[in-house]
Design a protein around this nucleic acid. Structure first.
Lengths: 159, 159
DNA sequence: TCTCCTTGGGCACACCGACACGCATCCTGG
DNA sequence: CCAGGATGCGTGTCGGTGTGCCCAAGGAGA
């Protein structure tokens, strides 16, 4: 299935206003409400739209500190990876975890209230992860770009 | 303003089903639709809920490769930072960019179709960024955790 | 060239549900 | 005992959503 510009316009709008009604979207895209409803349903059924979710302001919850954590394991054996991953998914402050190529085995993104809070997270969550050989933390001083979807998606021109 | 468990339950549910109706949410949380409507509006007005957005399946768009890019600048002067940041926000394949403490100046998260596509991005987007001294790329082999909101948010117990 | 068929769009309508309001109740704290 | 805040119920109105039908455009085949 290929997407045309109107599909991309629908997706671009829904990534901003997920609760927009059919008529509302139809006006912005330049379609009738029924044609738009068909397209939107197709985008959902074909899996382009995974879900509709509320975006929370994490700063409002006091989570203003982002930390990148590099973790190297004692060994890269399959058993060690499985043991580590089974535990890291339980860490409540971890929002992302990548298994990486290169020297570092894993990279985590951790959200904390402040530096003191990260010390607590380091002690209660990270240091309890199994098979860890080395942990290296870097603090994010500022977030320059934060997009859910790369703009390249909406720039494609098919059809 | 403090949030109680019901507020957190509302937020937890809305981060999954942003289009849920008042009655639907009310049943899950254990409130009447009118009490829920008041709370939801308060959460929006107080800024806890920033927006409602559709989550796209980026793999459906062919973006299956995540790359972490470490960038060091020639100098950390304010002018160099500003020049770099003004350009990096224009890169269509960059989804996140942090100004970091420590040795690396910036860390980017880039989404690409595959390794060949990242070569193109490296050539057309990254290598054109100003004041760059060193670029180091690491490929994510797998995404172990990917959460929009840390689970710690919903575990708080106030009131 | 003509015709058939498919695909996508628009119009109209009817139904169902959501949303907002008013009011009574309850609980808690002063 | 009272006052304020929060809840729940009921109701009415409004809007969205889904359906059926028709139309236009384009492609395939005879």
């Amino acid at each position: 299935m290929a997407l045309d510009r109107k599909d991309l316009a629908i997706l671009a709008e829904l990534t901003t206003n997920a609760r927009a009604s059919h008529t509302e979207l139809a006006n912005k895209v330049g379609l009738s409400s029924t044609a738009l409803a068909r397209r939107q349903k197709a985008l959902e059924d074909d899996g382009y739209i995974q879900a509709y979710q509320a975006a929370l302001d994490l700063a409002q919850f006091g989570l203003t500190t982002t930390v990148l954590v590099r973790i190297a394991l004692e060994s890269q054996s399959d058993e060690a990876l499985k043991a580590f991953e089974a535990e890291v998914v339980k860490c409540p402050s971890v929002v992302r975890c990548f298994l990486m190529s290169g020297t570092d085995d894993y990279i985590l993104i951790v959200l904390a209230r402040d530096i003191q809070d990260f010390e607590r997270i380091h002690r209660t969550e990270l240091s309890r992860l199994p098979r860890v050989a080395r942990v290296q933390s870097s603090f994010a001083l500022r977030e320059v770009v934060n997009r859910a979807v790369p703009t390249v998606v909406f720039g494609e021109t098919r059809r």
